[in-house]
Computed example of a mutant assay.
Amino acid sequence: MTSASIVAAALLCAFATTVVWQVACRRIPEPVATDESKRAYRDLAGPRLTLLVVLASAASGSLVAHTAPSASWAIWAVLSTVGVVIAGLDAFTTWMPRSLAHWSWVVLAVAIAGTAFWSPAMAIAGLVGAVAAGLLFGLIWLISRQGFGFGDVRYMPLIGAATATISLNTFETALICGALLVVAWAIIDRAIHHRIRFLPWGPAYWLAALAALALH
């Protein structure tokens, strides 16, 4: 993969993420069941937070272009754009919008369908990974008696689809590393603030997926 291609991938992801982030922050309605401490989505549309999210997307896109098989790029692009936006909203507000999660499934389905033309085996792997990750976390959510938000369950198909296109080991590594990052955050947060304010599952699993890709 040439340097020009990597830069192009980073710029494309950055542009797409900028558009999705601005639309999401300005158009997505606030959740009905929330508290006054939640940061409003519209307050996230400023240049500083937008830049942070866009840089994360660009870094993700460049890593994918450098590391992942080209046939998997469409699926990884979903995680590197819409997935980054959802993770960012979770990081800054602790709420993952249901409508954006559902929209991400549609985009993911299109990406998987497009991948089937280039590599049917990779498309099947992505589909199985998406379903498996969603069902696994749905089961954990039920067993834990709703111990975490269902938005995290909605997010997991993006993680499962992308990592499964690489290998089963990458899929497993991402899930394990994501859990470890959540636990590490909980320990640090409790040590600093003497309580666990929230657990950033979205950012943790997005970062874990990239780490698993880099290490595969």
Rank of each mutant, 00 (worst) to 15 (best):
residue 3 S to G: 08
residue 5 S to A: 01
residue 10 A to K: 00
residue 12 L to F: 00
residue 14 A to R: 05
residue 15 F to N: 07
residue 16 A to R: 00
residue 17 T to F: 03
residue 24 A to L: 05
residue 36 E to K: 02
residue 38 K to W: 12
residue 39 R to F: 00
residue 42 R to E: 12
residue 46 G to I: 04
residue 47 P to F: 09
residue 47 P to R: 10
residue 52 L to P: 04
residue 55 L to D: 08
residue 59 A to F: 09
residue 60 S to G: 13
residue 60 S to C: 12
residue 63 L to D: 00
residue 71 A to P: 14
residue 72 S to D: 07
residue 75 I to P: 01
residue 75 I to L: 02
residue 77 A to Q: 08
residue 78 V to I: 05
residue 81 T to V: 02
residue 82 V to L: 15
residue 82 V to Q: 15
residue 87 A to E: 03
residue 92 F to H: 05
residue 94 T to Q: 05
residue 95 W to D: 09
residue 97 P to I: 07
residue 99 S to E: 13
residue 100 L to F: 08
residue 104 S to T: 11
residue 106 V to N: 07
residue 109 A to K: 10
residue 109 A to E: 11
residue 111 A to W: 01
residue 117 F to H: 02
residue 117 F to S: 02
residue 118 W to C: 13
residue 119 S to K: 06
residue 119 S to R: 07
residue 127 L to A: 14
residue 131 V to C: 11
residue 134 G to V: 15
residue 135 L to G: 07
residue 137 F to E: 13
residue 137 F to W: 15
residue 139 L to T: 15
residue 139 L to N: 10
residue 142 L to G: 08
residue 147 G to N: 07
residue 148 F to W: 03
residue 148 F to R: 06
residue 149 G to D: 11
residue 150 F to E: 08
residue 152 D to Q: 13
residue 157 P to T: 15
residue 158 L to P: 08
residue 164 A to T: 10
residue 164 A to V: 07
residue 170 T to S: 12
residue 176 I to D: 04
residue 177 C to L: 13
residue 178 G to R: 12
residue 181 L to M: 06
residue 182 V to W: 10
residue 186 A to W: 06
residue 193 H to V: 05
residue 195 R to A: 01
residue 204 A to K: 03
residue 211 A to M: 12
residue 211 A to P: 01
